[in-house]
Design a protein around this nucleic acid. Structure first.
Lengths: 347, 347
DNA sequence: GCGGATCGCGCAAACGTTTGCGCAAAGTTG
DNA sequence: CAACTTTGCGCAAACGTTTGCGCGATCCGC
């Protein structure tokens, strides 16, 4: 009756076997060889541990080691398929490496984001992968003064000393415009994303540059919007098409995001403007439904899976001590146009 | 030079102030009144803590208290908008309560799920919200022998002693069928979900029952599928429509899930069958794009936000000790049909 | 001015792990 | 067989928090 129920942790297991916790710990952490534990003892411990399902308690280990084997993932909107897919990729990769992922949704709110960062830090996340809220560099820049490894994605701030992964948004927007000008369009509108956010800024730069190259005056190309929501986009669409005289109306439009595209299509439908007859569309962000709306949408597809892989790899490299955590290192990926039926050729 | 840099934890803060850790701990955990700490002392500690940004280290607290203020969320596919929206709701609610959420994606794989559960348990998650892989009750049933609070959602197992929240899938499917029979349809196909999973079984029951009530022989109503993927659904769609002679062809079809709907529409498009002229559709699961495909889809909308709220509430109740963790308590929510343009009336 | 209640706070143990140091037994060398 | 090395393992401290118990000081009633 001395010992009652099954051992649940290293201490009890040790007592159960009449061995010290020290030895048990060493064996279970795979250090048996290094500390010259005998084959027999190792065996005995391993089998007993397996039998009772005993693993070292991560909390005790964390306290001692200062390592939590946890990373934080902060995105502005998990319900957005782009970020959902990204999250899926991140989680998958880090689980393989023995890490758990704390998921947080900043809901595009800078204050929430700031609080989230505090929480992650106090919970001692070993690394952070962040798609920041965007705009004015806010809470993230405060991270510079900490030592926690950080990787930024999508809504990056190019000057911060972090590894970052993003799409080449300038090139992507240029391609979108070229796709349209190549098919005879001269009046091309755009539906912008969150003002001040990196992707929006870059896409707009590319948009303007491509128009200039094509010799199209910017004044012929209305732009509206201001964030990544469907509601704003719907309103912006009405602003663009409702007031313009038919002959001044853009013949094509480029929405700068998935939700924006949703709002655009909704308004277009309400205004009885058909795609691509009345207006052509090249939409940013490939979505599960892109090929199913009618007409199927021509999109600018960001390589989400690769972004996830890359972001994960960068963070893992830092965690492994291979590279310094505060290196300004921007990784740029190419988007590609997937051509469907939402663009008509103007003769 | 005795003290060097800023205090970072309760101990250092205590030393800094010349007060015991005990008192600091009590003040910072809001227990000042209960332990009769003087106003002044409390004030002093609070301001110093605020100044240096000192919070109790959750790891130390976890070790001592056995509470991690962390819950685990396991879904079969975060990239699925239904689960993404659910995850968002869960995270939002639990963050408010001071909990963090460990997100896991079982990828519809029972082995992954089992490992995930082990991980969650060893990490001492205080509660688990699970949308199980489905089919044969697998790893989840093993949880019965633990004491960790568990809430099941969507893919539930009605006999397990857990709180569960799900849609009334039988009624939902019946309504879908009625919607069609009411508009003259007599040959109604269905595209089934994961074999053996609760939602699929219930929806199928409802499907059959409604047909029976309407006096329609089951033999007139083809069914195919076997999981929740678009690929399987696409193939099943071809099986149904390609082989059938036109007059035997179903005039309507009910896909049992979001991805399934994707596959269906894809195949229908490939087969040159237009909706709703050639075939009417009532699709399970409202999606962001449901109103944008053309024609806009009539869907069976599950109340995701409410499911998230409810699941969170149930878990929080258990965590608060208000209700027992092993109570078989199935909460059933009504789905509702949102009627759009994918159903035509047959005269 | 004395016994008892109340006030304000600290001591020390406990949670479960990892690890630097050390120590006895066994093996090796000369 | 003495001195020295290797083998195999344990002691105890440390990580940062919370909490039962206790202790001196102040206050109250009489």
């Amino acid at each position: 009756m001395g010992e009652s129920s099954d051992p649940t942790n290293l201490q009890e297991l040790a007592r159960h076997l009449g061995i010290s916790v020290t030895t048990v710990s060493r064996v279970l952490s795979g250090q048996a060889r290094r500390f010259r534990i005998s084959k027999q003892t190792e065996e005995r411990i391993q089998t007993a541990a397996a039998q009772f399902g005993v693993r070292p308690d991560p909390i005790g280990a964390s306290l001692r080691l200062g390592r939590t084997r946890t990373i934080g993932l902060i995105v502005p909107d998990v319900a957005n398929p782009f970020f959902a897919a990204f999250a899926q990729g991140i989680e998958r990769r880090f689980r393989k490496e023995g890490y758990a992922v704390l998921l947080c949704d900043s809901a595009e709110d800078a204050d929430v984001e700031a609080e989230l960062l505090r929480v992650m830090l106090s919970r001692k996340a070993e690394g952070l992968i962040i798609a920041p809220v965007g705009q004015k560099l806010g809470a993230v820049s405060a991270l510079v003064e900490t030592t926690v490894p950080v990787v930024l994605m999508d809504r990056i701030f190019p000057d911060l000393p972090f590894p970052m992964v993003a799409t080449d948004n300038i090139a992507a927007a240029k391609e979108a415009v070229h796709h349209l000008t190549g098919r005879g369009h001269r009046r091309i509108a755009c539906l912008r994303g969150l003002e001040g956010s990196f992707p929006d800024g870059e896409r707009f730069k590319g948009f303007q540059a491509a128009l200039k190259e094509a010799g199209i005056p910017l004044t012929d190309c209305p732009m509206a919007g201001g964030d990544y929501t469907a509601a704003t986009a719907a309103k912006a669409t009405r602003d663009i098409f409702q007031n313009a005289k038919p002959k001044n109306r853009p013949t094509a439009i480029i929405p700068f995001g998935g939700q924006i595209t949703l709002g655009l299509l909704e308004s277009l439908h309400a205004l009885n403007l058909s795609v691509p007859e009345a207006v052509s569309v090249v939409a940013f962000d490939e979505q599960p439904w892109s090929s199913l709306v009618s007409p199927p949408l021509t999109t600018v597809a960001q390589p989400v899976e690769e972004m996830a892989r890359l972001a994960a790899s960068r963070l893992l490299e830092v965690l492994a001590g291979k590279v310094h955590a505060r290196e300004n290192r921007l990784e740029v990926l190419k988007a590609k146009i997937v051509s469907r039926e939402s663009v008509r050729t103007i003769s």
